[in-house]
Design a protein around this nucleic acid. Structure first.
Length: 260
DNA sequence: ATGGTGGCCCGGCCA
């Protein structure tokens, strides 16, 4: 089974790019972030034509998350308990082939002295509470998406360049650490222990071609799934121009699992 | 170098 997370930076601008990629790479479960669409505008018909069921949570302009599955999609739940604690359509969950799948778009935080940074830490704490309320680490659970956190310094092209900034701060990494302590595993590190494999590159300053990226798109799995993980990779090709269309600033993270 | 690029949707905001 192929599980993918991809921040597409507007599905309106990227639909054909995404469906072309799906035809080549054949994901079974594809989690998207930053669709930047309302639920009404979400192109569920385009995915249905490819044999996929969908669940989407979006307010139309910012954020927006989706789960796209061809192995079943049951019991979708959008958001946490209130609009306030979700901070703008940032999480959706559904059960696909017995796996409780969560597609998340963690707040960026902007800067460490910002109220948005405080909100980012609060959102991560709410995620931990939500998981505690809705699942257990002995169940097959996947929490995937754009975490806007580089878990360690090897996940950043130049740690010195990020000194004092968001995405690498100790409180953010500690908040991620609490999710891992709960029972989730950042399986990508099993296959790339030395790091230096990134999932996001700034559009500006030729960052992609210079290798100036970060690994902030994560696939977190509970043990029943992590133990069945066969490979994990970033599809850098999808960060390049494809079929004449412009890419997202994120590349898909692709995980293959030995499950039915 | 407070620039640079890209998407929202048309004046700034957000990443």
């Amino acid at each position: 089974m192929r599980l993918v997370t991809w921040n597409v930076n507007s599905l309106t601008a990227r639909l054909e790019y995404v469906t072309d990629w799906m035809g080549t790479e054949q994901p079974d479960i594809l989690c998207l972030q930053e669709t930047k669409q309302s639920d009404a505008a979400f192109p569920d018909g385009a995915f249905a034509a490819l044999g996929y069921e969908t669940a989407h949570h979006g307010d139309g302009r910012w954020n927006g998350v989706a789960i796209i599955s061809r192995v079943g999609l049951e019991d979708p739940v959008a958001g946490f308990s209130t609009e306030e604690d979700d901070q703008g359509t940032r999480i959706i969950a559904a059960t696909c082939a017995g796996i409780r799948v969560h597609s998340v778009y963690v707040p960026n935080g902007r800067s460490v002295d910002s109220e948005h940074y405080t909100g980012k830490l609060a959102w991560l704490a709410r995620l931990a509470t939500y998981l505690d309320e809705t699942c257990t680490p002995s169940d097959p659970v996947a929490v995937v998406g754009d975490f806007n956190i580089a878990p360690s310094d090897v996940d950043v092209w130049d740690p010195e360049a990020f000194a004092g900034m968001t995405h690498v701060s100790e409180p953010e990494r500690a908040a991620l650490g609490r999710l891992l302590e709960w029972g989730l595993d950042d399986v990508f590190t099993r296959f790339h222990p030395d790091g230096e494999v990134f999932s996001w590159w700034d559009y500006r300053m030729g960052a992609f071609h210079k290798g100036h990226g970060m690994r902030i798109d994560l696939v977190l799995l509970t043990d029943p799934l992590a133990d069945r993980c066969r490979s994990a990779a970033v599809d850098r090709e999808a960060r390049k121009n494809r079929a004449g269309n412009k890419p997202s600033d994120h590349a898909p993270v692709v995980v293959d699992l030995d499950v039915d």
